[in-house]
Amino acid sequence: MPLSEYEQRVLEQMERALTSDDPRLANTLQSSGRRSPLRYVLVGLGVVVGLLLLVLGAATSRTWLGVIGFVLMFAGVAFAFASPRKRETGPAGVVNPDGTVRPGKGSAPGKRRGGGGYAGLITRLEERWDRRRHQDGR
């Protein structure tokens, strides 16, 4: 059943609000999760070779060979479930109600705000907290 005009307008408003509130989340949700077939070939090859090494190590009583096989199998499965790395350039800006994008404060292409890791997370959370406090007028 198709959406009514009102429902479509509300949905578009929600999308714009999400994009302006958190552009990174919106980009993540819009990105396609397609992965290269080469990735799956490498994973399959790693798992099969790892299994062969594990069985061969157990058959010949060479523990180190079995451990290498297990590690290879584990690495293959971890590689299969890991998300591919992307070049993050940070948020492009804020989406206006008319659909145009204006650059955000301090968003320079090619630079990530706050860095990575735990310190970067804390910095981003502090920035968000400060923005919210200033918006509320406190």
Rank of each mutant, 00 (worst) to 15 (best):
R133A: 10
D22E: 12
R113V: 09
V101F: 03
L125Q: 09
G115W: 00
R24L: 12
S107N: 15
L51K: 04
M14A: 12
R24G: 11
A78M: 08
A92I: 13
K105C: 06
S107W: 15
L45Y: 07
T63Q: 05
R138I: 01
R87N: 10
G69N: 03
A59T: 14
G137R: 14
E12T: 05
P97H: 05
T89L: 07
H134C: 05
R16E: 09
V10K: 02
L45G: 11
N96L: 13
K111D: 08
E12Q: 15
E5A: 12
A78W: 00
P109G: 08
A58I: 08
I68Y: 06
G137W: 02
G76V: 01
G110I: 07
Y6E: 13
G115Y: 00
G50A: 05
R138L: 07
L121A: 10
P37D: 05
W64A: 14
S20A: 14
G57F: 01
A26K: 10
T28E: 14
R112V: 07
P91H: 01
L121T: 10
A17K: 04
V67F: 06
R112F: 01
S20Y: 00
V10C: 00
R112D: 11
W129Q: 08
L125G: 04
N96V: 06
H134V: 06
E15N: 05
Q135V: 01
L3T: 07
S32M: 11
W64G: 11
S107F: 12
P2M: 03
E88T: 06
